[in-house]
Amino acid sequence: MSPIVKKKGEKFTLPSKYLLFILALICAALMVVSFSTDALDKPVNTFAGFIVVPFQSGISSVGSYLHDRSEELAKIKELIEENAELKQQVDKLTEENTKLQEDKYELNNLRNLFKIDKMYDEYDKVGARIIARDSGNFYHTFIVDKGSADGIEVDMNVLADGGLVGRVSEVGRNWSRVVSVVADNSNISGKIISTGDTLIVSGNLKTYETDGCVDFSQLIDADGVVNKGDKVTTGDISDKFLPDILIGYVNDVKMDSNNLTKSGTITPAVDFAHLSEVLIILENKQTIDED
């Protein structure tokens, strides 16, 4: 007897296993559509922006307030001791400071000679606060509280403390999602600032959690001059990232088995565990190239 056939006078209920099958098909269709197009993004983002984000902003501000207060209480005793020590240090340091002022003038001259670019100081930036982190534990993505109403667009770069945090991957009216540099599926074209050699920086959840570094690969370093401590910035050939933004510092380098390219690990310049506010650069690489 087919379970779907209606008997006279009985209310029709769909058995749950067919419901499961239908919804599983819907999920598969959603996955295919969202993977190959972005037709679904706008209505979904609008819904999220209206309903969930205001709560998240509110809860995040309350939560961070409470967290800061509780940390303060724990630290008071330490701080009193530190204060006494520090007063002594201040006197010693004032002496050293005057000597360092002289050195600073020399350093500035050398920097100009070396032509270290500070290009990204000239871009317009907007500050944003992180209001929610990835609700699973496998990814490093987070939500910030500025969106299209503040001029944010997809692929804008996100900075904190002068280093690259990631890029915007989705935008709603009053929120945006940022995929970070250390996220497992992130790949950025970078370069070693001293030599100009390009490399690819790939996020890796496992190595970031254990060693605090992410991987890089495809470095062609013919002269063998790249070693630990070199600065890595975003490269000129990336189509999503503005050039010369600091990503991190080389941690170790080794030659690949093909004897042509080198790979290794990079320590990111930004401390992802303690981020609460970020800066979003308001210019997309694509629009700059059009000028």
């Binding site: 999920c27 269709a29 959603l30 996955m31 969202s34 993977f35 969930v52 699973g136 990814y139 993505t141």
Partner: peptide
Amino acid sequence: IFFGPILGINALIYMF
């Protein structure tokens, strides 16, 4: 909607 890499993957897993 907020965090997944692809829309629908978490829905499928949680549903099952």
